[in-house]
Structures are given as C-alpha cells and as structure tokens.
Nucleic acid binder design. Structure first.
Length: 556
RNA sequence: GCGCCUGUAGCUCAGCUGGAUAGAGCAACGGACUUCUAAUCCGUAGGCCGGGGGUUCGAAUCCCUCCAGGCGUACCA
C-alpha cells in the first residue's frame, strides 16, 4: 500500500513537471510515513517540504501542484489534504485495504517474509557460556535474543546457522577439574581445604559423586594431574549436557557446538599466530607475544602468548573468528554480555588484519539482567554457587513468559526480571495478553464451525465482497498490513523487540474490537467477513510469536 | 582519566534512523461480565523527553558540552 502511494506520487511529480507546474525535474527522495494521529490520514509525505529549496517554491504551492497532477485509476485514495507546514495527507478507501488481507491468506505461514536476505550466509553465535556451571538468567536473555534474531533473519531470507562456542580449554576448565577432584577426595574422607577460587556450587559435588560411583577410589591411584584432567573432562561434558538440556527446554537449538580445544588440535591457533607474525603485526615484548591491535583502532596492544608460553583466551578467539570466515559466512554475528564490550575492538582488529571487511562482523551487546522477586533483587554469583539458574526460572514462570520478557526490551537497556510479575496473568505480563488473542480467535472459530463450516472461498475470487467498515476493523487491517515492514526493520536492525511491540499493539487493537463488535452474528455475510478478518489476525499473531519462539495456544 | 551503554509520566519501557498535539502497560480514580473466554474493554488524571548550547522549515531523535547512573579499562575468561 505504501508502495502504491509512493508510485502515485512519483507519477504526479513527473506529470506536474511536464505541465510546468514545477520548475525543476530534480526530486528529493520520497518518504511515506504513517501519521500517529488518525486525523492526519492513513499516509503522509513530507515531499513538498523537502523539495522547497530545490523547487524554489513554498511547500504548500508544491503540494498543490502535486495534488492537482495525481492520477488514481484504481480509486485507492478517498481524500487528500495539505496540512501543517506542508504535509500531504492521504486517506485510503476502505476497500483498498482489503487486498492486504488476501495476502495473509495467500502467504499464510510465510506472511511477513520479504526475502531481504537473498540467501546470504549468516552465522550467529550466542550463549557460549563456559561449561563450568549451569546457565543463569543473563544467559537466558542472550539465548532468547540470539535465537529470535536467528529466527527473524531466517524468515527474512538469510541462510542462518546458530553456533555455541564451547570454552573447553584453558584455566577455568582446569579450575573446574580441581574443584571436582577436591570434592571427590572429600567423599573418600580426604578433606583438603577447598579454595575460594574453586567452584562452590552443589552441582560440583553431584559430579564428584558420579565419578566416585563410577571409579570408586581409582583416581587416587593415578597421579594428581591426570586425575584433575579426567575430572575436568567428565565435569565439562556433564555440565554441557545440562546446558544443552536447559536450552532445549527453552526451545533454543544450535546447529553447531564449536570446541575451543579443536582450534588447538587442528593447529588453527598456531597457524594464525604464524600468519600474523609474517604480517609483522605480532611482536615480542617482555617475553610475551603481542598483537598490534592499535594498528586497527584499538587503544592498546594485546597479549596473545604470555611470558609463561601459554596462549591467552584472545589467541583462540582470534583463531576462532578467522575460522568462522573461512567457513564462508557473509556475515558473522556475536551476541555478548555488555561487560565484554571492551573486547569488540580487538576482535575487529584481528578480522581486519586478515583482510576481511570488518563490517561483516557484528556484535550484539546485551545489557545485564537483574533478577528480582517482588521488586527485591536476588543476589547472584556463579562462583559462590548461590544463584537461581535459567532452568529454575523456566520451571517457575514458563518458557513463553521468560522469552517474552527477555524480548520485550531493547537489548541496549538493562532488564529487571521480576519472577513474581513473570507469573502474573494480567497486563503486567503481556505475554498472556498476546497469546490470549490467539486463544480467543481459536475459540470463536471453533464455535463458528459448530453451526456452519467456515468458508472463505467467496473472498478468494472477489475480495471486495468483504463487509468490513467499522473503524476498529480498518485499524486492524492497517496494522496487519504493516506486519511485513515490521519484520523487515526488525531483521535489518537485528532488533527482535520490534516484533514484540508490534504484537502487543495488534493484540490491543484486537481486544478492543472484540469487546465492541460481535463476530458471530445473525447476518451471515458480515459474520463471514469478520471471521475472515480475525483469521488473518490469528495467522499474523501466530507468525509473530513464532519468530520470538513463543507458542500460540488455541485455548487458555 | 579514557572507552561503551543508559537517562522520556510516580514505576517499567516504546518512539519506526529528523516530522504535525511525545505514546503503551503498571500504579491512582471512575465505569463495563444472564453476552464469541473479564488472562478483556472504555474513560479520567499524569511530561521543561537529565541540563545548556548548536545544525534547519521542523529535534526526544543529528552535533558539541556539562551532570547523573551502569559496565569495561589484565601476560582473567
């Protein structure tokens, strides 16, 4: 519809110029927007104002020239007006909206998808929590956002792969092994002191118990180093299994689990360092190897191999990102917690150093989550083991509510997640507000089917047979017709919350309509039309919720 | 100190990359269930968009500056 209006204006501009109503043939970019206020029409354009200096005419004169040159053979425009400083407002004929409903039926599950991705290969890496403990709410936010972005991009025609980077190498894995081994020893009656920097959580003890059940005291008979190594392997695997399970119950499924250790095993880390050495962007200082990230906009150089010969986490991360682009992705997205923002520059540096355009790499920084109960903050710390895990949250409030809350805010702003609010079934907690629309419509359709089979075939051939004239109906159709645009913007900006807000708005329009007008009426023609409309709403709500990974229940 | 993010109604947040009279939900107040699900709806009230400058026809939105909060600033991850 927007496009139609735009084309009408383009034609009018051309015609006005031919008729010498406008002195210049150079026109500025035409933007069409939907005014916030209904009395300003369905669409408006500021073209007359932006062209004022080029045409050397007053905006209102330009607007008049355009309007007098408009052709509208399909009778789409009901009325126009020139308002304010020179806006041109368009009012659309009711029947002109109907085809956008037909589109929803035609495209059904694909409605809203515009293929802006054109098959572009995109990788999105998210969560990637260290396998040293269960996922917490912060990871949950990353999971919800990453997964929703992946769903939206796929829907918009990108070829998306979801990846989880497993930090199964390095110091903290060793710490994990040590923690488990100490607990294991304590089961065997050897109570060595348990250091503060070891993982304190209950789950460590559970893992130690499992190892004891399996091996009894066998580990004491090997040397301590291999015993710790064994414990770390078992523990990491065990915890990772738990993480996978939790993500599964959160409806987050990864295409690939990428092991950090594999970068060492394949020689990728070594190879990358060697390559950068040859490029002379890695140098030695104070016994360590430094990467000259300052050459690429970072504020200081960074160590890749420490004085003790051990590589830093950054070294494997460089190799990892090299590896990602070697796999042929056109775009790589990382979802990180905001506390990692200092890391962006150096990763970008490494990408640019290898000749890849840094614009192909995009970081979504997610702000912190504060977990609350009744407005009171719940203290959280992985190390101390005093925390509520993502699983606890899902168990308590449900997957749908949790996901919706995570996605109901721009990821740029910190999020207060209140467990008590998340359980409420009122407007405090809009997930049910949106789902309720789906359930309500499903219920009406069931009831309609009882007396008469619902049959929309009459509208397939002639959409103008629809009888939808109520203002609430037009508002709904308008909102529905904006859904593809919403998806598009959400995909381009990688901002899932736009979908969330769209759905809340659509839900609000529907609930208002529902309360004011009855769908199942004695007038058969009106009833069929309204069933058609609400079915379109149902499909759109279902599609939108699906992009967020939230279910659309048929009854509540 | 430097860097990133944030500052919009009492509270929690939107605001479509510059548009017209800044919007929702909650909380407050007043209404609507013998009705297709009241997990809903309708109405009232509530604002120097952190402050100050600029850019232009036009700024919550862009630029500068100041103030406040969060995070980061390791040969940790």
């Amino acid at each position: 519809m927007k496009l139609i209006i735009k084309n009408i204006i383009i034609d009018a501009l051309e015609k006005a110029y031919q008729a010498k109503l406008l002195p210049s043939s150079s026109f500025t970019k035409i933007t069409i927007e939907e005014p916030k206020i209904e009395s300003h029409g369905d669409f408006s354009t500021n073209i007359a104002m932006t062209m004022a200096s080029i045409q050397k005419m007053a905006p209102k004169k330009i607007a008049e020239a355009i309007l007098s040159s408009i052709d509208d053979p399909d009778n789409i425009i009901k009325d126009t007006q020139i308002a304010g400083p020179g806006f041109i407002n368009f009012f659309i004929n009711t029947k002109a909206w109907y085809p956008s409903l037909a589109k929803i039926f035609r495209e059904d599950l694909k409605f809203g998808s515009e293929n802006i991705g054109k098959g572009k290969k995109v990788q999105i890496e998210f969560v990637s929590a260290n396998p040293t403990g269960p996922l917490h709410v912060g990871h949950g936010r990353g999971a919800a956002v990453g997964d929703a972005v992946a769903r939206i991009l796929s829907f918009a025609g990108y070829n998306v792969k979801k990846e989880y980077y497993v930090n199964d190498s390095g110091r903290q894995i060793k710490t994990l092994g040590t923690s488990v081994f100490l607990r294991y020893k304590s089961i065997l009656g050897m109570d060595d002191p348990f250091p503060d920097d070891c993982y304190q959580g209950e789950y460590i003890i559970d893992i130690a118990k499992n190892i004891y059940n399996d091996k009894k005291d066998a580990l004491l008979k090997t040397d301590e180093k291999s015993a710790v190594f064994y414990c770390s392997k078992i523990a990491a695997k065990d915890i990772l299994t738990g993480i996978k399970k939790d993500l599964n119950s959160f409806d987050v499924i990864f295409d690939n689990w990428f092991s950090e250790q594999s970068l060492f095993d394949s020689g990728m880390v070594e190879k990358t360092i060697k390559k950068f050495k040859e490029q002379k962007i890695i140098y030695e200082k104070d016994g360590a190897l430094w990467f000259k990230t300052t050459d690429f906009g970072d504020e200081k150089d960074r160590v890749v191999i420490r004085g003790n010969g051990i590589t830093t986490y950054f070294a494997s991360d460089i190799a990892y990102h090299q590896e990602k682009f070697l796999r042929g992705y056109d775009e790589v997205i990382d979802v990180w917690g905001a506390d990692h923002h200092g890391y962006i520059q150096r990763i970008k540096a490494s990408i640019e150093a290898s000749g890849t355009d840094r614009k192909k790499f995009h970081v979504i920084l997610i702000q912190l989550v504060n977990l609350l109960r009744n407005g009171k903050q719940i203290a959280m710390s992985t190390r101390s083991g005093q925390f509520i895990s993502l699983k606890d949250v899902i168990d308590e409030v449900g997957k749908d509510a949790a996901r919706f809350i995570f996605l109901s805010r721009h990821y740029d702003s910190p999020l207060d997640f209140d467990l008590e609010i998340a359980k409420k079934k009122t407007n405090d907690n809009p997930v049910y507000y949106v789902q309720y629309v789906h359930a309500r419509i499903s219920s009406i359709l069931r009831k309609a089917e009882e007396s008469n089979p619902v049959d929309f075939s009459a509208f397939d051939n002639n959409i103008s047979e629809l009888l939808l004239n109520e203002i609430e109906e037009i508002r709904l159709i308008k909102a529905l017709s904006f859904y593809p645009d919403t998806v598009k913007i959400s995909a381009l900006q990688k901002e899932p919350h736009k979908i969330t807000f769209y759905l809340m708005n659509l839900a609000s329009l529907f609930h208002s309509y529902y309360n004011k007008h009855k769908v199942l009426t004695d007038n058969h023609a009106i009833m069929q039309s309204r069933l058609y409309l609400i079915t379109a709403v149902l499909k759109t709500i279902r599609n939108g919720l699906n992009l967020l990974g939230i279910s659309a229940p048929e009854a509540m």
